[in-house]
Structures are given as C-alpha cells and as structure tokens.
C-alpha cells in the first residue's frame, strides 16, 4: 500500500518534471516554430542563476521562482534581438544558430563558474509515507508544474495579451494588419519561453549536480515531449508528459532506470509512427 503511494508520487513527479523541462520549449518551438537547441543551456543558466543568488544570501524560493526566470528571460531577450529575430520562418537556420548559441553558453558558463560540479541542497526536508521516506521536494515540483500549466492556460485563454500572441503566431500578417507589431509580440513570447526554461532549470537545480554541460541531459526529452504533444500547446504538453512520465516510471520500477529511459524512447518512436502529428493532432483537436 505504502509502496503504491510512493510509486504514484514518483509518477506524478516524473510527469511534472517533464512538463517543467518542456514548457519553455513548447512556447519557443511549439508556438514560434524556432528550433531552440540552446533550450538545455537556458535551463543550465537558470540553475546557475539560482545557485549564484542563493550563495549571495537570497532566499532560495525567491531565487528559483523570480530571479532565475528573470535573468534567463533577459538573456533570451538579448538573444532574440541579436540572433533569432533575423531567422523567423527559417527552421533549419534557427537550428544551426541556436546550436552555436548552446556551445557559446556552455563556454561562457565554463569561463565564469569553472568546469566543476556545483549545487545547493533542497530546501524542503524529506518525510515518511508509512515505512517509506520520500523526497519532500518532489511535491514542490509537482505543485510548480500544476501552477505553471494553470498559469499558461489562463494567460493564453483569458487575457488579451494571450489572444494577441496566439493570433500573431497563426497569422502574423493579419495581426500586423490589425495594428499589432509582430516583432514586439515575438520578442515578448521569446522572453516568456526563455523565462520558463530558466524557471525549470532553477527548480530542478537542487536535485542535481550542475555543470556547464548539464543542459544536454534535458534537450532530447524536451523535444520528444513537445513533438509528441502535437499542435496544441497545453493539452499536448500535458498529455505527452503524462504518457511518457508514466511509461518511464512503470519500467523503472518494474525493471531498472536504464530500461525506463529505453521505454520512454521506444514509446516516443511508436507514438510518432501511429500519430505522426502528435497526440493532439488526433485527440483534443482544436484545444489549446
């Protein structure tokens, strides 16, 4: 019984961390069609921003939830102005440019922080479920992921800014004809996407040993989740993260963590063979 609860919590946690890892990319790639290969590095910088802020004496929650997204968002803003805005609509070129950016950021982080592992400890103590000890921080990540989804949904669906952004992503010429500047909208959207990546890197930072190349560990999962999710932003993110997280954890518990990772990849291949447009290409059509 206790074990069932623990496994359920771990599954929820796996789903939540996939949602976090992929949210920024879902905005940048899913909405804006920019293949951001530097997504992992944005997360890495979120982690470093958090650790630096905490070492400077800032409260860890402020550092994770406010400072890191802001810092990475601003970096994203600079990147958008200097590089990305020249490349909208040129899918392959963005790939090359952001790959270069990813190498650049790894180099930069190495120069500033050195090539050693750094980290901070989790701010929430573990607690017991029956006979099992469980990482209390898992719940924090689950809560953050839920709030994130609700926040994204309400901004995109219920606010005027969200409506404008969605409109501009679909038909930027029409948005321009109606008097909105697509350039500005793209800039703001990229800022949000980067900030989300920064947030993900920040909240995951206390769980890992951070090195400048840490981003590489996330990038594949993020792309798999977003691509398998399909055209709908939030429904896609939620359904594919849910599917992969559960598959991963079932095999991890039943066999081993390695098989869990393999199962995730096999599931992705099979899924894309059956649903080439992603989950939301077939189900939840037209949802956000």
């Amino acid at each position: 019984m206790d074990l069932t609860v623990v496994i359920l919590v771990e599954m929820l946690y796996a789903v939540a961390s996939l949602i976090l890892i992929s949210a920024g990319l879902a905005v940048v790639f899913g909405m804006m069609k920019v293949i951001n290969l530097a997504h992992g590095e944005f997360m890495m910088m979120g982690g470093y921003a958090t650790i630096t802020a905490v070492n400077l004496g800032v409260n860890i929650f402020v550092a994770m939830l406010i400072i890191a997204p802001l810092v990475v968002g601003l970096i994203g803003l600079v990147v958008e102005r200097l590089v990305i805005r020249h490349l909208y609509g040129r899918l392959v070129d963005t790939m090359l440019a952001t790959w270069g950016l990813s190498l650049f950021f790894i180099g930069l982080a190495t120069m500033i922080f050195g090539n050693t592992t750094t980290g901070i400890s989790t701010p929430i103590p573990g607690f017991a479920i029956g006979n099992y000890q469980i990482n209390g921080y898992n719940f924090f990540i689950i809560v953050v992921a839920i709030l994130l989804l609700i926040g994204m949904l309400s901004i995109l669906k219920a606010t005027r800014a969200g409506l404008i952004a969605r409109g501009a992503m679909q038909r930027s010429d029409m948005a321009a004809a109606l008097g909105y500047s697509p350039d500005r909208i793209y800039m703001a959207t990229f800022f949000c996407g980067s900030a989300l990546s920064g947030l993900a890197g920040a909240v995951l930072a206390p769980l890992v040993g951070l090195v400048p190349t840490s981003g590489g560990a996330y990038i594949a999962k993020a792309f798999i989740t977003v691509i398998a999710g399909g055209p709908s932003l939030i429904a896609g993110l939620f359904s594919s993260a849910g599917f992969f997280g559960v598959v991963n954890q079932i095999f991890t518990f039943a066999i081993s963590p390695v098989i869990g990772e393999v199962a995730l990849l096999v599931a992705a291949v099979v899924l894309l063979r059956l649903l080439p447009q992603g989950i939301t290409g077939k189900f939840f059509k037209g949802k956000l």
Binding site: V6, A14, N138, L207, G216, A217, F253
Partner: peptide, 10 residues
C-alpha cells in the same frame, strides 16, 4: 547522464 534517482530510492 542519469540524474533522477527518485524511483531508485523508493
């Protein structure tokens, strides 16, 4: 490159 040990700990 594995960095998530939650299930292993359980």
């Amino acid at each position: 490159d594995v960095s998530d040990f939650g299930s292993t700990i359980a």
